[in-house]
Simulated assay, not measured.
Amino acid sequence: MQKIKTKCLRALARFSRSGFARKGTLALAAVTVAVGDAMAASKGAAGFTKATQEVSSYQTPVSNLMKAIAAVIVLVGAFNVYFKMRAFV
């Protein structure tokens, strides 16, 4: 078992020092970067469009919720003022 391990390690060391391994590694890195860029470019625009549509669809419900919260705050404030004014009378 030790001999097989030693032979495999020597073969790996010989391969990693070869010009073929260096060129292959550079080619693999170049292909990976090119494919990644192409995929990001194609899906990026669609992602932004979808996100914009989703955010726009929430605009009306969120606006109505904010108006309802503001109305409750105004009513509570008005009652507080009314009750404080009645205390002075």
Rank of each mutant, 00 (worst) to 15 (best):
L9C: 04
L9M: 13
R10E: 15
R10T: 15
A11G: 08
A11Y: 00
A11D: 10
A11T: 14
A11P: 02
L12N: 07
L12P: 02
L12E: 09
L12Q: 10
A13N: 12
A13C: 07
A13Y: 03
A13E: 12
R14D: 14
R14G: 02
R14T: 10
R14Y: 05
F15V: 12
F15E: 02
F15P: 00
F15I: 13
S16K: 14
R17E: 10
R17I: 02
R17H: 11
R17G: 07
R17T: 13
S18W: 04
G19M: 10
G19A: 13
F20W: 15
F20K: 13
F20P: 02
A21T: 06
A21N: 06
A21P: 01
A21W: 14
R22G: 11
R22M: 08
R22H: 11
R22E: 10
R22P: 00
R22K: 15
R22F: 10
K23T: 04
K23E: 13
G24F: 10
G24H: 04
G24V: 03
G24A: 09
T25L: 15
T25N: 09
L26S: 11
L26Q: 14
L26P: 01
L26V: 06
L26M: 12
L26I: 04
A27M: 11
A27H: 06
A27W: 04
A27E: 09
A27G: 11
L28G: 11
L28E: 02
A29N: 03
A29H: 05
A29K: 06
A30N: 00
A30T: 13
A30G: 04
A30E: 09
V31W: 06
V31P: 01
T32L: 14
T32Q: 03
T32C: 06
T32H: 03
T32A: 15
V33R: 00
V33D: 03
V33F: 05
V33G: 00
V33A: 12
V33Y: 03
A34N: 01
A34F: 04
A34Y: 01
A34H: 03
V35I: 14
V35P: 01
V35G: 07
V35H: 01
V35S: 08
G36F: 04
G36V: 01
G36A: 08
D37G: 13
D37C: 13
D37N: 09
A38D: 04
M39N: 04
M39A: 14
M39E: 09
M39D: 03
A40P: 02
A40Y: 04
A40L: 13
A40M: 08
A41C: 01
A41T: 07
A41I: 04
A41K: 14
A41Y: 05
A41N: 07
A41Q: 06
S42P: 01
S42I: 05
S42N: 09
S42Y: 06
S42M: 06
K43R: 10
K43C: 02
K43M: 11
K43Q: 11
K43Y: 07
G44V: 02
G44A: 12
G44K: 05
G44W: 01
